[in-house]
Amino acid sequence: MSTIVVYLEQKGNELKRSSLEAITAALGVTGSTVIGLLVGGDAPSVQLAGEYGLKECAVANHDLLQAYSSTAVSATIAEFAKSVGATSVFFGATAAGKEISPRVSVKLNAGFVPDCVALEANSGSIVASRPVYAGKAKINMAVTTTVGVYSLRPNVFTARKVDNPTAVSVREFTPTLSAHDCRMKVTNVLRNEGKLDVSEADIIVSGGRGMKGAENFHLVESLGKVLGAAVGASRAVVDAGWRPHGEQVGQTGKTVSPNLYIACGISGAVQHLAGMSSSKVIVAINKDKDAPIFKVADYGIVGDVFDVLPKLTAKLTH
């Protein structure tokens, strides 16, 4: 019998979708008991997890968890995992998940498999698939240790509601923390106000060199606005200073997997494809019919972005 602890992450007072995805993934490992763990969070939000099949959850609280500290959170998760005899710990591979999961793996003497895109339960053990070389290849791997720590790439696993959900049984957990565990803490969060980030968006509209200049990005932004999408950019565009680095999608930018990715005037260099090829649906708009981006696209428009983008935006507005 295996026990999987799923680290539940909150945004504001709500559970992040990546945490719900991790719950569904954990429930898919047959023969496992799944326990959620919320650290220093808001207990009522846990009930939403019940709709996704979570039955058991612990909420960790401690005076030293008032300010977010990745080292204190890691210590809490590891202590909890030990207390319930966890065989696996699941994280969403979010900014926070990526930072704390490796620490937890060291604390638990556990093998670490980051950024999983598929998990297969094979007679009690888990075989995970993860992209390497920025998605140019994929490896299938497993831990050789008793305990395994996995992080799951957001928006790849589907969070599924269950029929006949039950109320989540919630208990408290008080970790043994000392000031030493809290030597680092978050003192402030600076939000990019009014701007949706590519790493969180369901839809991304990205512009490349074909946009010809910073002054033409309003075409990309307008389409993005109609779709409620985040604006992304290729490396060439960021290097040219047309767009900020935070919008860069690709091997040296952000890896994204939105439901819809619209590439405008992006030829599709292998480094760019690496960052967006796990998107669910890809649309390419490019005037060069031989551009490599069309080879990974579900739908393509061979045409000039300056002509196509305003028309597409107008049609989607109606």
Partner: peptide, 30 residues
């Protein structure tokens, strides 16, 4: 602490419908 069983190259399962840039094409995309 981990072992790799195999490495594979991603297979593109994309539909790949390529359209032109006329009004009809853009409506079809929508």
């Amino acid at each position: 602490r981990v072992q790799t069983f195999s490495m594979e190259l991603p297979q593109s399962k994309r539909v790949g419908k390529i359209l032109g840039d006329t009004d009809t094409d853009i409506s079809e995309l929508v």
